[in-house]
Write a protein that binds this DNA or RNA. Structure first.
Length: 289
DNA sequence: CGTGGCCCCTGATTGC
DNA sequence: TGCAATCAGGGGCCAC
């Protein structure tokens, strides 16, 4: 269940194993895996066949494969349980194999999209005009991510100040900053000693800068060890799990001592998810209960 | 309009 | 052991 670091690990794997290869044929095994491709699975397969894949790109948790010629990109999102695997062509099908891409070379490997919960998927998008990166317009609303050199810190801070929401919601709002999910939001908030319900309007510029620094630090730390994984659901493009979960300070640590002050960490149900925090280091704002 | 609630799915785990 | 409830790291959609 990937956030930015995991998706970046997948992107690098695709760059290593898939870029430059020409598609021979595509098999769509589950319609939900191509539901963002309005023309359907048969159209997806037909239009991808014969095309050569360029250098994979990423923004936040989305990744896309520009096709040579520049007119089309394959957009991918892993959702909660998606994996992109490069497997030997003869390997047994995974239980939740949704899409298979065969290549027109003798490498003997194929690309597989495997996704238990089918929240993720692949789709094809026409690229208009001057998009040198082949960014599909359906993700134009996704903000640049904090590891993008063109991410604008000043604009981010102003957007935070203008919003009437809480800091964790803002971290998860992909139109403000992309790539941050529930795990890294909790980790960055713990590092910044901020309560998840802190109103964004109360954040000073130094405070939001500090928070952003923690977001980047925790993502870079995760990237350095190949992304976070709790179980076999998340596997990178070569079939290997990440091990960053061993270094998490907040997420999943309910009842365990805070690594700063020793106070037992707490978990709160929040937006159909969980927030983990230290009740001593991360004091709730006055208005919150 | 911005914000927050709901829902899409499958499977593992927990609790009665 | 069996079954139901709960939970899971995402994000689009739609009331309000």
């Amino acid at each position: 269940m990937p956030e930015l670091p995991e998706v970046e690990v997948v992107r690098r794997g695709l760059e290593r194993w898939v870029a430059g290869r020409t598609v021979a044929s595509v098999e769509v095994l589950h319609p939900r895996a191509v539901r963002r491709h309005p023309a359907g699975g048969a159209d997806f397969a037909a239009r991808l066949a014969g095309r050569t894949i360029g250098v994979p790109r990423r923004r936040g948790k989305y990744l896309w494969l520009p096709l040579e010629g520049g007119d089309l990109s394959v957009l991918g999102h892993l959702g909660m349980s998606g994996q992109l695997l490069v497997q030997p062509a003869g390997a047994p099908d995974e239980k939740h194999l949704r899409i298979r891409v065969r290549f027109a070379d003798d490498t003997g490997t194929e690309l597989r999209f495997v996704d238990q919960r089918t929240f993720g998927g692949l789709s094809l998008h026409e690229i208009v005009g001057d998009s040198a990166e082949g960014l599909p317009d359906v993700i134009a609303h996704i903000a640049r991510d904090p590891l993008d050199p063109l991410f604008e810190e000043g604009a981010y801070h102003l957007a935070l100040r203008a919003k009437r929401t809480t800091v964790k919601r803002a971290l998860l709002d992909q139109s403000l900053i992309s790539g941050v999910g529930n795990i890294y939001a909790d980790e960055a908030l713990w590092r910044a000693k901020l309560h998840y319900e802190r109103p964004t309007g109360t954040l000073t510029r130094p405070r939001s800068t500090e928070l952003l620094t923690h977001v980047r630090d925790v993502m870079n730390a995760a990237l350095a060890v190949g992304g976070t994984s709790f179980d076999s659901l998340y596997v990178n493009v070569n079939g290997e799990s990440g091990y960053f979960d061993r270094s998490l300070d907040a997420y999943g640590r309910e009842g365990e001592p805070c690594r700063r002050c020793g106070t037992p960490m707490r978990r709160r149900a929040w937006m159909n998810r969980s927030s983990y925090f230290c009740p001593r280091c991360q004091r709730p704002p006055r208005s919150a209960s």
